[in-house]
Design a protein around this nucleic acid. Structure first.
Length: 270
DNA sequence: AGTCGCGCCTGGCGGC
DNA sequence: TGCCGCCAGGCGCGAC
């Protein structure tokens, strides 16, 4: 479920609990996620101190001197900090037990998430072709305009492609395109530089606001302490198909685009 | 090379 | 109440 704001919210939430802590034990109850959990994970990370908690796109990294634990939350994954007395729930697949007995617990009903151990300075093939971070200057109108020329794919699918830009999923793609006044089905290669400038600005604003609000909780996204995010109340189109457009009071349309629900206003978005 | 659709899973909801 | 189909914050891969 998580897009960049939810992953960043998770990162900021777990970081203060993990920095300087040693991993005492790793308990893997279910290792069949999107991909099998790296077989040597427990042995590799046990005894290691967590020096940093980083994020690249929707991937989180627990950084140690020996290497990095790479975590993706998929559609339904979450990470929480729990005490040893917290009852175990169904789909609590992995525990990282810290030296202070607190537990970093990975929970993922649909098991679309993944956990890898990356030894030393090594990288993972999944990281190699990722696009720029949306909240950096590398994500610009000139960049989007340049990489989109000649592409017939719908601009919404283009925006959700992690090889183009990381972190923008279905909620924030819908929201950004609405705020930029761009129709989601428009071929990416036909969008002008000026309109990409608007889109880039709106993507940055929406993601930053969502991070500030602690992410969007629709169903099961929770913070490290179990609390929800509050950006849902700021959504303009996502989940509002058939309701009134907040700009023109027309009825918001809902269609399928790339197997994902897409909501837009046919009057405000061209 | 680009584009499209499938499938990995579980759970919740609406309809019959 | 049950059963069934459909939907869900993602995304890599194989088939054209």
């Amino acid at each position: 479920m998580p897009e960049l704001p939810e992953v960043e919210t998770t990162r900021k939430g777990i970081e203060p609990h993990l920095l300087g802590q040693k991993v005492r034990l790793v308990l893997v109850r279910q290792d069949q996620l999107r991909w099998p959990i790296s077989a040597g994970l427990g042995q590799a990370v046990t005894g290691q101190m967590i020096d940093a908690v980083e994020r690249r796109g929707k991937y989180l990294f627990l950084v140690t001197a020996a290497g990095r634990v790479m975590i993706h939350l998929g559609m339904s994954g979450s990470l929480r900090i729990q005490s040893p007395s917290a009852p175990l729930k169904t789909h609590d697949h992995v525990d990282f037990v810290l030296a202070n007995e607190q537990i970093l617990r990975f929970h993922d009903p649909r098991r679309f998430g993944s956990i890898f151990w990356l030894p030393g300075e090594s990288d993972h093939s999944l990281l190699r072709s990722l696009g720029p971070e949306p909240l950096t200057t590398a994500f610009s109108a000139a960049y989007l305009f340049g990489v989109s020329r000649g592409k017939s794919v719908a601009v919404k699918n283009f925006l959700m492609n992690s090889h183009i830009v990381v972190g923008v999923g279905n909620i924030y793609a819908n929201e950004s395109l609405y705020l930029a006044g761009i129709r989601p089905e428009k071929p990416a290669g036909k969008v002008s530089l000026a309109r990409y400038a608007r889109l880039v600005d709106r993507v940055k604003e929406v993601l930053a606001s969502a991070i500030e609000a602690g992410g969007t909780t629709l169903r099961d996204f929770v913070h490290e302490d179990g609390s929800p995010g509050y950006f849902k109340q700021s959504l303009h189109v996502y989940g509002r198909g058939g309701e009134a457009c907040l700009g023109c009071a027309g009825i918001l349309k809902e269609v399928r685009l790339g197997q994902r629900t897409t909501v837009f206003c046919s009057r405000c978005q061209r």
